[in-house]
Simulated scan of single mutants.
Amino acid sequence: ARAIALAQGTCRELTAIGVWPALAPCVTAITRVEVSDEGHLGKVQIAAGDYHLPALGYVVELHAVGKRLFDLLRQAPGVRLHCPATLEGIRREQAGNVITLNNSVELNAQLVVAADGSRSPLAAQCGIRWRQMDYQQIAVIANISTALPHSGDAFERFAPHGPLALLPISGTHSSLVWCLPAAHEHDIANWDEGQFCQALQQAFGWRLGRITATGERQFYTLRLRTAERHITHRLALVGNAAQTLHPIAGQGFNLGLRDVMTLAETLTQAAAQGEDIGDYAVLSRYQRRRQPDQASTIGITDGLIHLFTNRHLPLVIGRNLGLLAMAHIPSLRDALARKTMGWVAR
């Protein structure tokens, strides 16, 4: 099952709205993060204990957490689920939207939220367009087994062809995200388990001992997609519908959840003041609040890809000096830790 990392800041947000207790039984704590550059000395480690925290974040497997979240949703007051159902069409009117589902049900809404993922069909029907940049990479997603236990360690390793990340999950298993050149997808897809483990061992090293097995492998094309605007008439975009990021540093889901939390706060405040929650002025406040965080996170994520895949010698030297500086200068390491833990303003 695919896994994602929830930053410490995200977990605090989920605690504040009463969701975290339902998720806590199925999470794995990240107690230490190691960032390194393959073939070079640059390396920095961040430990939860240095910040008097039990964990820097937590890893959740999407299938398990999705089931628990749906159980909460079914119990939530004022929520009506139309599931399974898909969007058939949307008719936009001055005072609201009329949504037609594929089971012929019609829904009236003052505001519609596009949370249906990258290249959102709902947003597209409302005239939203996306800017796109192809990284010429694929992500290989799999769960792997290692001879040594991970002990709560997560790894981000930058290699010449793209980064790889290992997140701790149950026992001696870790969740892998390995970014590789798209031009080699056919060859990589045809590797047997032994070939795959051997190539991964060479790229990652022996920090967790021998890589002994890999589960089902899935492949995703990696592109940066950003919506030209995140609001329009009685519509707001959140998460991957608004921006789809490279998986480096695991920022995408955490950024998307900050979208959701900010939109909820903005709508709650508007409703308390007697405003129309779908009014463009209300949605503009949401968009203004989110722009700095979105721009910063996208910029950092995109910048890291270009920095660590560039083999130009001065850049290689510079980035390794930067990692060494972070390892030895607490203020620099703290800045990285704050971003890793999702301690950002929204």
Rank of each mutant, 00 (worst) to 15 (best):
G299F: 01
D293V: 00
V35A: 07
P292L: 01
T214G: 14
L237V: 13
G205Q: 07
R157E: 01
D279T: 03
L62G: 03
A47D: 12
F204L: 14
L321S: 08
L208D: 03
H82Q: 08
P247K: 06
I90P: 10
Q8P: 11
F155P: 10
A29W: 05
F219N: 11
T268M: 11
M326H: 00
L307P: 08
T28Q: 10
I231W: 02
L267Y: 11
R12I: 12
D334V: 04
A115V: 11
E156T: 05
A1R: 00
T262I: 05
H63P: 07
G239R: 03
V112R: 04
S36R: 15
D50N: 08
H150Y: 12
I4A: 11
L180I: 01
N310I: 00
L72P: 07
G162K: 01
L324E: 07
A345H: 15
V260M: 07
L283S: 10
V113S: 02
A203W: 15
A55Y: 10
R223P: 04
C83R: 14
P163L: 00
I298Q: 09
I138R: 07
S118G: 12
A241I: 01
T86K: 15
L167E: 06
I231K: 05
A142P: 09
G194V: 05
A213L: 06
E106A: 11
I211Q: 08
W20T: 05
A22H: 14
A295I: 00
A142F: 10
H306V: 00
H40Y: 14
T100V: 13
L307I: 08
Q195L: 10
D192N: 15
Q8W: 13
Q136K: 12
T10S: 15
I329N: 01
A281W: 03
V59T: 07
H150T: 11
Q201E: 10
K43R: 15
R223S: 08
C197L: 15
L62R: 00
R229T: 12
L41G: 06
T212C: 13
T146G: 08
L23C: 12
D302Q: 02
Q243R: 07
V113Q: 01
A16T: 02
G89R: 13
A47N: 12
G299W: 02
S175T: 06
F219W: 15
A123H: 02
V79S: 03
T244K: 02
I329W: 07
V98Q: 13
E265H: 15
H161F: 00
W130V: 01
Q273N: 11
L222Y: 03
E61V: 08
T244W: 09
L313N: 00
G152S: 05
S104G: 04
S36C: 06
M133W: 15
T172F: 14
Q294V: 09
Q201G: 10
A76P: 02
N254H: 09
R217P: 09
H52F: 02
R68V: 02
H328A: 04
P314Y: 12
T226Y: 01
S104N: 14
T221V: 14
R290F: 11
L62P: 07
G209E: 10
G252F: 00
A165S: 12
Q75M: 07
L72R: 13
I46Y: 09
S118L: 04
G57D: 04
E275M: 10
V65R: 00
S170W: 08
R319D: 01
L111N: 00
I305H: 03
S104A: 11
A3T: 04
I30D: 04
L321H: 04
W178E: 04
R207T: 03
L56Y: 06
R234E: 05
C83T: 11
C126Y: 00
